[in-house]
């Protein structure tokens, strides 16, 4: 479904992605791993069509996504509906004055009737267990609650692919556990998951396949997540762990 072919990208003079090749099939659950600043977030932005590659090609369902095509309003809107993005900082994602409005923002734009919107919003709120927040102001929620609202407002668009940037960051262990189970469930329901994470304890639960970046912004490993976790040498080499790391499940 997603084909990245020899992608390069740099911010003015700083290289962020160096000849990236990656192919993701429908229904996969993939984890992007690597030390800080290795290019994970950039790749997620690229998949979401926020940025476009300097060179190389990005195909979504066989159709190439280019800078020019992204200028086409209809094309980019459809892409944004089909790929949902949960930002690392949930605060940046919430700009409405109530949780209900926040979740309804997407479906309302899709031309659903108000009653369809309502049922969809309620489904999403129930799904994430945040029904009672419906009238609350997103700005004042706790970190974990904000994350749930952010996920709900992406889910209400019913995207095929869910892209999550460090979704476990700043969550307490209980909420982390909940999120892992939720993502598993989504994947079972047929959603493709692309997650960037540093969380070595939970990564094997939210992904079957792992992509490892090294600090020169290239992919050094593309293998089963559990295999990768066993390879302590490799993880050390890309500066993701130090010598105290031991594989355990």
């Amino acid at each position: 479904m997603i084909e990245l072919n020899d992608i390069c990208f740099s911010y003015s003079e700083m290289i962020a992605l160096d000849h990236i090749n990656l192919s993701i099939k429908t229904g996969e659950a993939i984890a992007l791993m690597g030390a800080n600043g290795c290019g994970k977030s950039t790749l997620l932005k690229l998949i979401n069509g926020i940025i476009s590659p300097d060179s190389g090609s990005y195909r979504f369902h066989g159709e190439e996504v280019t800078h020019k095509k992204l200028q086409d309003v209809k094309f980019s809107k459809l892409l944004h509906q089909r790929i949902g993005f949960v930002f690392q900082n949930s605060d940046t994602q919430l700009f409405c004055s109530s949780v209900y409005e926040e979740v309804a923002f997407g479906p309302r734009q899709m031309g659903l009737t108000e009653s369809e919107v309502e049922s969809r919003v309620n489904d999403c709120l129930t799904l994430l267990g945040i029904q009672e927040f419906s009238n609350r102001i997103p700005y004042h929620l706790s970190g974990g609650e904000k994350r749930k609202v952010a996920i709900a407002c992406v889910m209400s668009l019913n995207p095929e692919v869910l892209v999550l940037d460090e979704p476990m960051n700043g969550l307490d262990p209980k909420t982390q556990r909940w999120l892992v189970d939720f993502l598993k469930k989504l994947n079972k329901a047929g959603k493709t998951l692309i997650t960037s994470t540093h969380n070595l304890e939970l990564v094997h639960e939210i992904s079957r396949r792992a992509i490892l970046f090294d600090e020169s912004h290239t992919i050094v490993a593309d293998m089963m997540t559990e295999e990768l976790l066993k390879d302590a040498e490799l993880l050390k080499r890309v500066n993701l762990v130090d010598t105290s790391y031991h594989y355990q499940l």
Binding site: H80, Q81, F85, T92, F95, C153, L157
Partner: peptide, 21 residues
């Protein structure tokens, strides 16, 4: 900037209340 990106990604159709966004 991230808020604008988020708005852009979630603006999948016609936004009737651009000013309030």
């Amino acid at each position: 900037l991230n808020m604008f990106y988020a708005l852009k990604l979630r603006s999948v159709g016609k936004n009737r209340s651009k000013y309030s966004s």
